[in-house]
Nucleic acid binder design. Sequence first.
DNA 1: TAATTTTATGCAACCGCTTACACAACACTA
DNA 2: TAGTGTTGTGTAAGCGGTTGCATAAAATTA
Lengths: 338, 338
Amino acid sequence: MNVTINDVAKAAGVSTSTVSRVISDSPRISEETKQRVRKVIKELNYHPNAIARSLANKSSKTIGLILNTEAETLVRNPFFIQAMTGISQYAQENSYNVMFAYNKSEDGDLDIAVRYVNSRSVDGIILFTSRTNDKCIGFLTRNNFPFSVIGRPDQTEGVLWVDNDNFKATNQVTNYLIMKGHSRISFLGGPQDHNVSRDRWEGYKKAMTVHGYSIDKSITFQDGSFSEEFGSECMLNMISAKEKGTPLPTAIVTSDDMQALGVLKAMRKMNVSGIAVTGFNNVPISLYQNESFTSVDVNASKLGFFAAKLLIGKIEGRKNLPTHYIVPTNLVEVKPFY
Amino acid sequence: MNVTINDVAKAAGVSTSTVSRVISDSPRISEETKQRVRKVIKELNYHPNAIARSLANKSSKTIGLILNTEAETLVRNPFFIQAMTGISQYAQENSYNVMFAYNKSEDGDLDIAVRYVNSRSVDGIILFTSRTNDKCIGFLTRNNFPFSVIGRPDQTEGVLWVDNDNFKATNQVTNYLIMKGHSRISFLGGPQDHNVSRDRWEGYKKAMTVHGYSIDKSITFQDGSFSEEFGSECMLNMISAKEKGTPLPTAIVTSDDMQALGVLKAMRKMNVSGIAVTGFNNVPISLYQNESFTSVDVNASKLGFFAAKLLIGKIEGRKNLPTHYIVPTNLVEVKPFY
DNA sequence: TAATTTTATGCAACCGCTTACACAACACTA
DNA sequence: TAGTGTTGTGTAAGCGGTTGCATAAAATTA
């Protein structure tokens, strides 16, 4: 039905191997023959069949992407789609395709990984998860299947990963607040089974102790979810603690913009103001506020880009490759509503 | 390296064709043999190679997705990622893979489509674009390549598409405002080269005329972009027109939540209040406001789901399939900040 | 019991491309 | 001039499956 390498070979009066070699620009073919074959290829509008090529090369030139996140998060946090654009960009630059599968169920990601690996439809996988003891990582490692992870995993031994320096990020943002004159600074952390949560906590702690400020347990919260609810809850908590004599913080370092939004909503609700809030991800919250709000932009598309770079480097067996990339973050002052 | 159908055949003492038939559960194989072969398959942990299968079947069992949207839009509007989850869901239920490629450049989508089609790495394509005279649609149609479109295209002849009833949506939301007592209602439209813009305009117009309300040209705006800027611009425009005697509307029907946000920001800036605003897409804007704000949820994941359904139906040559689906919308009252 | 049909399986070609190896033609060396 | 090396191209065997056709064995019919 479609024009194949055979048709080209016949039309050009050469063998298929010659055509194949012309396509890959092999030095073993004379310039003359190359010209002739290329002309026929143009005329017949021939394009190699990617699947046949994959079979012969034992390589699909495709990377798989597994999204195993709550739809809610996917929708509110542009992180994922941004990372995906970065992945797609690097993949295209290197003639790779990108497959993705979304599955929100627990262990759904593992099922997909198993399918990808067994059917050999992808050459490697990019994981978004970075939970401690991730099952996918275990599975892929055991099967010696190329993969890279967005978010530093628990066990980095033999794993390719990209991440921000989360320690540095909260350290920086805390220092920034301190520089602005704050000393009583609250902290809201993320789930304890994410490394990112521990790093962010340490970064905050370091900045505080270096400046000689105490860490008040009553205004630091850990093992929370990256959600609005958790943010509101913590803020309300602090507001009610105030009545029992615990003064409110003058600034709050949160681990996610959703948390920050929750904090701001609770502040608004309880008519509290004048507290500087910081978050992560530069989510387009666009809220009307006269509060000071700063977000750490994690540069998600770069994270995706480098995750793809690491993975494809591994697939192609390139030598002397880094095992990870640290993508810089930058502070973004979120413009108030007016 | 990996266990193939040959290994299974040898181990089970049958031919590869028998193994193949066992896998596809052919009725021509005896129950006894099936059992035996299946046992070997388990023991050897055999999984068919998807690529070899694709080559033999001349079908990749993969659909391609082309994202050709400004990164800014992709990030702010959850529409795309939502649609993608819907597509992925239907694809998985039907054993299809999903490939995606992101390219924001003008005609980048066409390049990707050409690559997908020529290399035959996908069996069909889902387009997000619905610009009038879309080049991709033309290309795919000419090549008789299966595709479906999210967003009713200009020429529906022979095209599979899904969309909301955009006429009905703005009609409904306008009626809703009228029901609430509004009669002087402004309208902000989208780009004229999108069908959706015309439909939304007509829906608004119909509701207004049916109720005998005039359409005041000075408070209706068309051919705008789906952006905050356009929203602000129109609002500022109306505010300054007020000084020249044109009264402000009491409600504004916009074609996008970003436009609505722009309107709200401009109102805030100019200290105008008490105008009901509506938008589209149920974007998580989370703004602090005491204004009334209603969004039309377009049910993006359903749109994706049905686009995949139409496409896969076409690919598999199913008969008596619909040529399009209309996905219902629903009004969402966006909760104010408190 | 022989003829016919049904059932279960194997053979081999094919999907479209890559590549190790063979080999002819020519150029160079001794 | 025979021997050796280089260059350009073809042959054929894969890659890992699917499937039309042939066929042997078993079941059915007359």
